[in-house]
Design a protein around this nucleic acid. Structure first.
Lengths: 259, 259
DNA sequence: CGAAATATTGAAGTTATTCAACTGGAGTGG
DNA sequence: CCACTCCAGTTGAATAACTTCAATATTTCG
């Protein structure tokens, strides 16, 4: 599997801003008082043990929009918990294209692509000003043996990454409309799980990034947004989306087809 | 993410043979003398600790071709190491289609889709007569705290599942020909890693299953096999495949395109 | 404000799908 | 052992879906 895909080091920087990597350690990173706590590594850890979980995070880091959090090929030492902001991860394929593999929001882990290897396999880029907690992986492995609930939550989060992959696999048999519908519903749910409005949100990524992720062109994504708007499924204006009728989007996904 | 995809329990059995689930515990399952040892959970575990790893496997189970190893919705208690044979895992999508999510061969883990949840998310079906080792997950979590190399290898294998997902993601930007080429090369590598011939093997799955996995129709897969044969990339006869020129297939993957 | 990036929309072109007919093996039963 | 059936696979022609190219609009950001 490895050799088929070349995870070439990311070279060009014709990105957004100047990707200058800054490491801003914020004072006293504490899981115990973090609002992402429930979804993140601490999970259901009881208050008696939460103090030990605090030791997990070595530092925090602010990443400006357009900056890279890590690059494929860099030595893998840490995973990251997104405190705030929005990221995409992507690979550079054999033919030199960029392929978006996932979008990450608050409370989700990043850097799991490096687990079990010496290096990260993917590139991670902030799509808006963001902040992450740096979790040295060795420390995570150690602590997870001491604190059972941490071990469980860690495995849960790894598994979540696998499920995220399965989401993309399910796209394989879908039409463009269904893919876009699934994408919007997926985002909606994840926002909802984080206490944001489920039916009204701002897309942090461009049409091109959406299309790349879904295996469509940006034009197709744009057209389908317009079509969904015409049929009153949603309201779109640039990055702002409102799901007028999530139920009808779900129905779209249930419409069987031949293939 | 969860609610968008309904992992409905698998109902119909118009499969291959009669899917009678039998639990055949073979005598003395021992990792220490297993030929899959290196690729499987023991990994690089030193001989001094290998004895403890033996305790991992509660039993073995033989699965006849066409039988299910587990079904989505069943309580998740164990992961499985494939000792021999070949499996596919698949989901039933909202619109009732079957979506193949992966193919598994010897030395690979299955059942990871259940980690972090109460139930398996996928269905697992044997594509040929197979044998698996049953690894109770709770025991795996315990033992992995005691034996460091086991913990590492376990995390490595979880990560491998994530990478497997990324393989599918990279298909998103590919043409049908590239997808099929990537598929063949991927299989080739995995066979090679297990000591089988890299350039000559039998496909265990149908054209339909390949197409389903790759997001193509079975007709398209068949046509591309023929086309590859005409251009002397491969030789195909039914399930038997010979890669005549793997290099040219790899080149196919490197040919950039607009999108 | 002006340039560059992002998004929309139309028309033409391509790719892969669909529908359909046919071939070839594997397995079954006479 | 052979005929028969069923399923998997192949191939062709027509069609649909999505992409590509191109022109225009809108927004963002320095």
């Amino acid at each position: 599997m490895e050799a088929v895909l070349c995870y070439a080091p990311y070279i060009a920087q014709p990105l957004r801003s100047t990707p200058v990597l800054r490491d801003v350690s914020c004072p006293a990173p504490q899981c115990s008082i973090c609002n992402q706590r429930a979804l993140c590594l601490p999970g259901m850890t009881e208050d008696t043990a939460i103090g030990r979980v605090d030791r997990l995070v070595s530092a925090r880091r602010r990443i400006k929009r357009g900056e890279m959090l890590y690059r494929a090929g860099e030595p893998f030492k840490s995973v990251y918990a997104v405190r705030s902001g929005f990221f995409k991860t992507f690979a550079i394929t054999d033919d030199g294209r960029e392929q978006v593999t996932a979008f990450h929001m608050g409370g989700e882990m990043m850097g799991m692509d490096g687990v079990g290897g010496e290096h990260y396999r993917l590139h991670a880029l902030a799509l808006e000003d963001s902040e992450v907690c740096i979790v040295p992986f060795a420390r995570l492995e150690e602590l997870s043996c001491e604190v059972r609930s941490l071990q469980h939550q860690f495995h849960r989060l790894m598994s979540q990454e696998i499920v995220r992959g399965q989401f993309v696999m399910l796209l394989a048999g879908m039409r463009a409309e269904q893919r876009v519908a699934a994408f919007l519903l997926n985002l909606s749910q994840r926002f909802a799980a984080r206490g944001y409005a489920a039916n009204e949100f701002n897309l942090r990524m461009t049409r091109e990034e959406i299309g790349n992720y879904l295996g469509l062109t940006l034009e197709t994504v744009s057209r389908i947004f317009s079509r969904f708007q015409d049929s009153s499924h949603i309201e779109v204006q640039q990055k702002h989306v409102r799901l007028l009728d999530p139920g009808s989007l779900k129905k779209l996904l249930q419409q069987a087809q031949a293939a």
